[in-house]
Nucleic acid binder design. Structure first.
Length: 270
DNA sequence: CATCGGACCTGTTAGC
DNA sequence: TGCTAACAGGTCCGAT
């Protein structure tokens, strides 16, 4: 389930194979994923040369002079560069032909992903309201502290709000809160500046480390080389409700916070 | 405005 | 063992 490290891993795996190549054609096996695929994707993309594969939040952007294809992996999306002769599976929704003869294939069983279009010099509406990148200097404890004043929602919900900071999903939110020693249920507006500094540090450290390790593989994520990530075995709280805290041995608690399964250590997190 | 709940989708897993 | 129901996850949108 791609969070930011998985998307960045995908980008890094894809870029050397796709950048500089011309898109020879676009084959849509479905007219829509989460949203209808706009006509520009099939009308304008063919013939264009990809100048860069970028990432913003969990979106991948394939830049060309005519505009950018904007792709979100949703929860089960996989992008791979494959030989054109590779057998087509049930959930292989989009193929973009590359001039070297291979195809960039978008597979997404649950179809929570999307493929959109962004005209040159514009920012797609879905990208316009996003918060800072967590690994950039625009994101800090101060950012979180300032944005959280007056908020009554839980800090976990707050941290997963893509307008606050992008790329932190359920897995890394749980891990970052554990590392910072903050309970997921704490009201965001009540958390101190010092604790937000620790949380921002934890987010940066965990995301950075996960990217180094190739992303977390749970069920659905495969990086473009078809190899799983190696971060899963390092998770300290996510998915471990009822098990012993790896730090202090206390039984980990679990409960839904803001509609999301959440796990924390009652002893390490206050 | 902030927050909450519903919707989307399907493979996997837990429970009967 | 087989079937069904719940669940997972990201994010938008309408309702409160």
């Amino acid at each position: 389930m791609p969070e930011l490290p998985e998307v960045e891993t995908t980008r890094r795996g894809l870029a050397p194979h796709v950048e500089g190549q011309r898109i020879t054609g676009v084959l849509l096996r479905r007219p829509d994923l989460r949203w209808p695929i706009p006509p520009e994707v099939s009308e304008r993309l063919p013939g264009q040369r990809v100048s860069a594969v970028r990432r913003r939040a969990k979106y991948l952007l394939f830049d060309t002079p005519a505009g950018s294809a904007v792709l979100h992996l949703g929860m089960s999306g996989v992008l791979r560069v494959l030989p054109a002769t590779t057998a087509v599976g049930a959930h292989d929704h989009v193929d973009m032909g590359l001039e070297d003869g291979r195809v960039l294939r978008f597979t997404d069983p649950r179809r929570f992903g999307c493929l959109l279009w962004q005209a040159p010099g514009t920012v797609h509406a879905l990208l316009a309201k996003l918060g800072p990148e967590p690994l950039s200097e625009d994101f800090s404890g101060e950012t979180l502290y300032t944005a959280s004043r007056g908020k009554t929602a839980s800090i976990k919900t707050f941290l997963m709000d893509q307008a606050v900071v992008v790329g932190v999903g359920n897995i890394y939110a749980a891990e970052a809160l554990f590392e910072a020693g903050i309970r997921p249920t704490a009201p965001a507006g009540s958390v101190s500046r010092a604790r937000y500094a620790a949380l921002a540090d934890a987010v940066k450290r965990i995301l950075g480390h996960a990217i180094e390790r190739g992303g977390t593989t749970l069920r659905d994520f495969l990086n473009p080389d078809g190899l799983p990530g190696y971060f899963e075995q390092e998770l300290l709280v996510y998915g471990r409700e009822g098990e012993a805290c790896r730090v202090c041995g206390t039984k980990l608690r679990g409960k839904r916070v803001g509609q999301r399964a959440s796990v924390w250590c009652p002893s390490c997190q206050k």
